[in-house]
């Protein structure tokens, strides 16, 4: 089936199977920042934006992306790099496998929450798992990024 969507500000027409998930479709079209790691909608690695809201692309059928605006980290080079620089300066990317999805969640949080408290930050990002860092370095980076350090 064909879907028409906007991916990182570019309109595309893609053939997708009825049972195909968006994360797989995105990867097959070269958006390799999108990672999958859990198969059960738990880890947050596949986080992208649909119409500006973060969502798990492993759990959304590609058909549902028809006529939607999808954003991956490849579409936000400037904004993502600003935060990635801070994250990396803390050493808090470590293996980096969860970083793109995590960064997409952080950027969405910045758009959604005004002056979030530490508790609100932690709550917003709970769905982004990381096994390397223990989360402390990520929190330090977010505070610097939001200017609440």
């Amino acid at each position: 089936m064909q879907i028409e969507l906007t991916i990182n500000d570019k309109v595309v027409k893609w053939e997708v199977a009825n049972d195909e998930f968006l994360a797989d479709t995105l990867r097959s079209h070269g958006f390799l920042s999108v990672k999958k790691a859990c198969d059960t909608s738990c880890c947050g690695l596949c986080t992208v934006w649909m119409d500006g809201k973060s969502m798990l692309s492993c759990s959304v059928l590609s058909l549902r992306a028809h006529s939607k605006k999808i954003t991956t980290i490849e579409g936000l080079p400037k904004e993502a790099e600003e935060f990635a620089q801070i994250l990396s300066a803390e050493g808090a990317e470590q293996c980096g496998f969860c970083s793109p999805g995590f960064i997409m969640s952080v950027l969405a949080m910045k758009n959604e929450l005004v002056n979030p408290t530490e508790e609100e930050i932690i709550h917003y990002l709970t769905g982004n798992l990381c096994r390397c860092t223990g989360y402390m370095g990520q929190l330090r980076a977010i505070k610097i990024y939001l200017g609440v350090a």
Binding site: A80, A84, E93
Partner: peptide, 20 residues
């Protein structure tokens, strides 16, 4: 505390892992 030489590439989702 020098940042990792691969830090920005992996954080930005560049295709550098096995599957990629």
């Amino acid at each position: 505390s020098i940042r990792k030489i691969d830090g920005m590439a992996i954080a930005m989702g560049k295709p550098v892992y096995t599957e990629d």
